[in-house]
């Protein structure tokens, strides 16, 4: 690990100032479960780190509000996952956190930091000798034509097929979450859908935040579809593993089981949290049954591009969406 300077400001204002003063390349440290991990691998080598873990402005969870749910960016994954109202009214959001990592890691990681969790691509994490355009722009991509069993089917390109590994952002994007962001130029609101970017020619650019900006709050508009939702995750083992495929799904059903509102996003299969409007269109007004659920899954993966070893995850992904719709549909009827 490279040396770095460490500061732990007491307020958000101080943190923004400290970040600006430390200059480009500085990283904010919250739970540390991604940043400190990648620093140990010499993948992240910031000269300075600003610790925002304990900032009071980033605390707090409010899931009772009439118009929106709010999550302080510094709230812990474990606390949000255990929130009783969230578990009852938005099981997809709670499950996306509960099925991520381990309880120890959920006790460290924050819901803000988790949004920017970096890929688990073994070639990215492995360092030399593997070329990686994300880690070392211009060096190439070892995953293309390599061991790509876990790599992205959606949103990849010729430069990078690294999978976005998070679960929480997948669930949030299904619920049209927005972020409050603070920096030296003031505060702005950013739809979560506008946070992550596909790799394109610059896989090293993963999001639209400026280096000196801090996510302070995550807000989710209230929707009746929350109760009929689930986050379904398929892994190589029963727990403590990243998704081979996952789906965040929320529905409301009208008379005769016709779909009124429908939200679908998929995880573990794309280069960024992946909302699936075509799947939602496929279901709109349709009766939710095995066939329509399967059609929605197929629509979600219509644009999928398989590599060498990952084609099976197209079928797995389709089934995962369909299974999530089945579970969500049952919940919507309760």
């Amino acid at each position: 690990m490279r040396p770095y300077t460490y500061t732990a400001p007491a307020t958000l204002e101080e943190a923004v100032r400290a970040l600006s003063e430390a200059g480009p390349g500085t990283k904010v440290l919250a739970g540390g479960t991604t940043l400190f991990d990648l620093m140990k691998l010499d993948i992240e080598t910031p000269p300075a780190v600003v610790d925002i873990r304990a900032l009071p402005e980033l605390a707090g969870i409010d899931t009772a509000g009439p118009r929106e749910l709010t999550f302080g960016a510094g709230a812990l994954m474990a606390d949000v996952a255990a929130d009783p109202l969230l578990r009852r009214d938005y099981p997809a959001l709670a499950e996306s956190l509960a099925k991520a990592a381990s309880q120890q890691l959920r006790n460290m990681a924050t819901v803000g930091g988790n949004l920017l969790q970096r890929t688990r691509c073994t070639y990215f994490r492995g360092g030399p000798p593997f070329p990686c355009n994300k880690r070392l722009p211009g060096s190439g991509c070892a995953a293309i034509g390599g061991l790509d069993r876990g790599h992205a089917l959606l949103g990849g390109g010729d430069a990078c097929v690294a999978t976005y590994p998070g679960d929480w952002a997948v669930a949030l994007i299904a619920f049209d979450a927005v972020l409050d962001v603070t920096g030296p130029r003031g505060t702005r609101t950013l739809p979560l859908a506008g946070l992550h970017v596909e790799p394109g020619e610059r896989p090293d650019r993963e999001h639209t935040l400026a280096w000196d900006e801090i996510v302070t709050r995550i807000r989710v508009p209230v929707t009746a579809a929350g109760r009929g939702s689930t986050y379904h995750k398929v892994r190589d083992r029963e727990s403590y593993a990243f998704a081979l495929a996952s789906a965040a799904v929320a529905v409301t059903l009208g008379e005769g089981g016709a779909v009124e509102e429908c939200r679908v996003a998929v995880g573990g299969v794309a280069t960024r949290p992946w909302r699936c409007p075509s799947a939602e269109e496929e279901l709109a007004g349709a009766v939710l049954d095995r066939r329509s659920a399967r059609r929605a899954g197929a629509a979600a993966f219509a644009g999928a591009r398989a590599g060498t070893h990952n084609a099976f995850r197209i079928e797995l992904g389709i089934r995962t969406v369909a299974e999530a719709l089945r579970i969500a549909g049952e919940r919507a009827l309760r």
């Binding site: 400190f36 991990d37 381990s102 309880q103 890691l105």
Partner: peptide, 15 residues
């Protein structure tokens, strides 16, 4: 009072 993995916790954060 909460369980964490101490390997991923920079010790300065337990101040």
């Amino acid at each position: 009072g909460r369980r964490v993995v101490s390997c991923l916790l920079p010790a300065v954060q337990v101040n």
